[in-house]
């Protein structure tokens, strides 16, 4: 019985074994922070393998689900230690008029595997629903996916409405999807463009770090 065995079970997507081993490790008094730290490395490795398509979506999905099972078991223990806070809260969806979801679903999986709290609004999501849900959740990030050139304008619409409601500074707006580009992100004033699903977690973490750093520097200056 070891953390390594648990990591192996998560990597191979064995949900049942992962759940069992996590519970046993907890019963034995293993430090949950140590377990989480090891599993973050495993999920990073899986994410990298998927980015290179050494493994495919179903395999990554199985690992992600095994990881979720473990996190559920560890959560109460982490909370008692004052840990277990998500890295960020994300509202995610495919914009109005667009029914494509594979990219969005991969991003969701990768973010959850990287300890983000994600609320997935699905496909064909009205721009105002992104904002309402972000307000309700207390989100840090609004992620809007678009797979068609004729639905891209809805990504801009989200940003425009945020501005009109005086909420633009409250959320980081992240965009992605096949027809999106850095140029489009710059045009509409998005905070981040993710060229592919695999890179989303790292880019979002960097964005949040930069934001926090900037905020603390501003605080110091004050």
């Amino acid at each position: 019985m070891s953390v390594e065995e648990l990591c192996q079970a998560v990597e191979t997507g064995d949900q049942k074994k992962s759940k069992l081993l996590a519970q046993k490790l907890m019963d034995e008094g293993t430090d949950p922070l140590k377990i989480i730290s090891s599993l973050i490395k495993v999920m990073g490795k899986i994410g990298d393998k998927f980015s290179r398509l050494e493994i495919f979506l179903p395999e990554m999905m199985m690992s992600g689900e095994a990881m979720s099972e473990v996190v559920q078991i560890l959560s109460p223990h982490l909370k008692r230690k004052g840990a277990g806070q998500p890295k960020g809260r994300v509202i995610l969806g495919t914009v109005k008029g667009d029914l494509h979801d594979i990219g969005k679903n991969i991003v969701k999986l990768m973010l959850e595997s990287n300890f983000f709290e994600v609320k997935d609004l699905g496909v064909d999501v009205d721009s105002t629903d992104f904002i309402k849900e972000a307000e309700t959740m207390g989100a840090d990030i609004i992620g809007a996916s678009s797979l068609m050139s004729t639905t891209l304008p809805h990504q801009k619409e989200i940003i425009d409405i945020l501005k009109e409601l005086g909420l633009r500074g409250k959320y980081k707006v992240v965009i992605g999807g096949a027809p999106t580009t850095q140029e489009w992100a710059d045009d509409i004033g998005a905070d981040l463009y993710c060229p592919d699903a695999g890179s989303a977690p790292k880019l979002i973490i960097n964005l949040l770090k930069t934001t926090l750093k900037k905020a603390s520097m501003e605080e110091m200056e004050r």
Partner: peptide
């Protein structure tokens, strides 16, 4: 090819602009 604009206006799926485009 798929038109992005029509009459200088961005085409938006499921909207009147799409019918026009």
């Amino acid at each position: 090819p798929i038109l992005e604009d029509s009459m200088g206006l961005k085409i938006l799926s499921a909207s009147p602009f799409e019918i026009n485009g």
